[in-house]
């Protein structure tokens, strides 16, 4: 019994991907309900005993940043759209991700199964797909370890309903899943190859401090009544109070540490 509920048919020709049909058939409501109530349904993966070599192709690493592109099949993508919406209402849930200071930019893009760009309406895949792309610092291994150590629940809800997703704890099957579903970049551009996100965050603080001192200096210099020595003294006080807080924000620059594959490839850099 396939019932099309009124008001749910998608208007043809709209480019708007926001208003995804929540569901098309009554049957899928029931199914997704079951899915909702049983999140761990049939997705357990046997922990791998051997140690497959996970990692990143070198082309995905430019300077201190790496590009990760993952495309995973999704079942009932509207649930994920809903969850991503929920996350947008809860920015504080993402503070641990922000505190990690590893990711410059990341994005999650839902690709509905019946709206492949440049394809006719008739072309439909069995599943919708979730595209995840991120620009992160540090090694692939650390990145995924920290996904499973620090923001495991966040990751699990972002990939909720991904087919075969083993959840982010334990980390080995999780890494294997990400590895199985990621694609290497053919071209990757990074505008700040010599700097990590932490360097950028520090630099913004330093800039604020410099502007602050610039203002104070102007104020002090404007005062014509004080002697040069007093001005020096006044400025020193300001300088001291500000720069004392910058001790952990003056990193040195340099090239990124080598990737594990570099060593075994005997690359001379």
């Amino acid at each position: 019994m396939r019932l099309i509920l009124p008001g749910m048919a998608r208007q043809p020709g709209t480019k708007d991907h926001w208003h995804e049909r929540p569901f098309s058939t009554l049957g899928s409501i029931g199914l997704s309900l079951v899915a909702f109530l049983r999140p761990a349904w049939g997705i357990s993966k046997i922990p791998l005993r051997d140690t497959p070599s996970f990692g990143m192709p070198l082309g995905d690493i430019v300077g201190k940043s790496s590009a990760l592109t993952v495309v995973t099949p999704l079942w009932c993508s509207w649930i994920n759209r809903f969850l991503l919406g929920l996350y947008r209402t809860l920015p504080a849930q993402f503070f641990p991700l922000v505190n990690l200071q590893m990711i410059h930019f990341a994005r999650w893009v839902i690709l509905p199964k019946d709206r492949w760009p440049g394809r006719s309406k008739k072309f439909k895949t069995r599943y919708s797909y979730l595209l995840f792309s991120s620009n992160f610092n540090g090694t692939w291994d650390v990145y995924l370890d920290e996904f499973s150590d620090v923001i495991s629940l966040g990751m699990d809800t972002m990939w909720y309903r991904s087919i075969g997703y083993p959840k982010s704890i334990p980390s080995r099957p999780f890494k294997a899943y990400i590895d199985d579903n990621s694609i290497e970049c053919s071209y990757y551009y990074n505008a700040l190859p010599g700097f990590s996100l932490r360097d950028v965050a520090s630099a913004l603080k330093v800039r604020k401090a410099i502007h602050f001192l610039e203002e104070k200096l102007a104020e002090i210099n404007q005062d014509t009544t004080t002697s040069a020595a007093t001005k020096d003294d006044l400025f020193f006080q300001q300088f001291e109070s500000v720069v004392a807080n910058l001790v952990n924000h003056l990193p040195s620059t340099g090239k990124p540490p080598l990737h594990a594959a570099h060593g075994t490839r005997e690359l001379n850099l």
């Binding site: 201190k64 340099g254 540490p257």
Partner: peptide
């Protein structure tokens, strides 16, 4: 990891290189 990222590099501690 410890040798490479923490001792030979300092980004995790806001220390850059």
């Amino acid at each position: 990891f410890m040798q490479q990222q923490w001792l030979n590099y300092g980004s995790d501690f806001n220390l850059g290189n």
